[in-house]
């Protein structure tokens, strides 16, 4: 495993205001280092702060306290524009309910993150086809999300996430809507992606996914309880 630090959080905290005076501590005191090509599990029950941590680490939300460094740069200091560029160039997302765009077929969904890029269309097509082939989806290229099974949709979502070759993939309950067999298949795919050099961060409350993790971060009530290699 490479020892290059990809993401580092120090003293990370997020607080929300509820009503006029009540402050909810969604996350506090998190210190963690994440390395390249690691599969990291953010594990905890519902409401433990997994999604909040995922949002903060991916730059979708700003921390109330602490810093998040991506390859040495503090992303909590980034402007909105710089955060967008950061997400575009370095981050891929996989959602529990796939979040494929219903009007686009599998091929177009995979291609979509790259539309704003300056990559020539023929190269874009080659890349998308190769990604679909890698995930064994080539025969489903022209199918729309409604015509695909849950497992296939999740693989399309993973293909979409890895299409731009991100440094990190954030996956929020990626097996949450799938049966056990398909869920394992998806985790094997994510593990494979991870072995190719991408850091994969999975938020889950599913204990069975621990077998795939290189590192597990236990969260409860907004606090990091422990982490294990």
């Amino acid at each position: 495993m490479s020892l290059e630090v990809i993401l580092e959080a120090e003293n990370l905290a997020k607080m929300y205001k509820r009503g006029r005076s009540e402050v909810v501590r969604a996350l506090e005191g998190v210190n963690v280092k994440m390395y390249a090509a690691e599969l990291i599990l953010l594990y905890g029950p519902s409401g433990s702060g997994k999604s909040t941590m995922l949002n903060l680490l991916s730059g979708l939300d700003n921390p109330t306290e602490g810093t998040i460094k991506f390859m040495g740069e503090d992303i909590s200091e980034f402007s909105e524009k710089k955060l967008t560029t950061f997400r575009r160039e370095n981050v891929g997302f996989v959602f529990q309910d796939w979040k494929l765009i219903p009007n686009l077929n599998a091929y177009e969904n995979v291609e979509a993150p790259m539309y704003p890029s300056n990559m020539p269309s023929n190269e874009l097509r080659t890349e998308a086809i190769s990604t679909l082939r890698e995930l064994d989806l080539l025969d489903r290229e022209h199918h729309f999300p409604g015509e695909l099974s849950g497992g296939e949709q999740q693989r399309v979502a993973i293909a979409r996430a890895i299409m731009k070759k991100p440094k990190i993939i954030f996956a929020d309950e990626p097996t949450g809507n799938l049966d056990k067999t398909t869920g394992n298949l998806i985790m094997r795919v994510l593990k494979r992606v991870c072995r190719q050099g991408t850091t994969v961060i999975v938020a889950t409350h599913n204990e069975e996914l621990k077998d795939y993790a290189d590192k597990i971060i236990y969260l409860d009530d907004g606090k990091m309880i422990s982490q294990s290699q």
Binding site: S58, T84, R87, E89, F93, P116, R160
Partner: peptide
């Protein structure tokens, strides 16, 4: 929903 997905993927507002 699609707009939020596109933004998460890194689409700037102008795209």
């Amino acid at each position: 929903n699609e707009i939020s997905i596109l933004k998460a993927m890194g689409y700037a507002n102008r795209y």
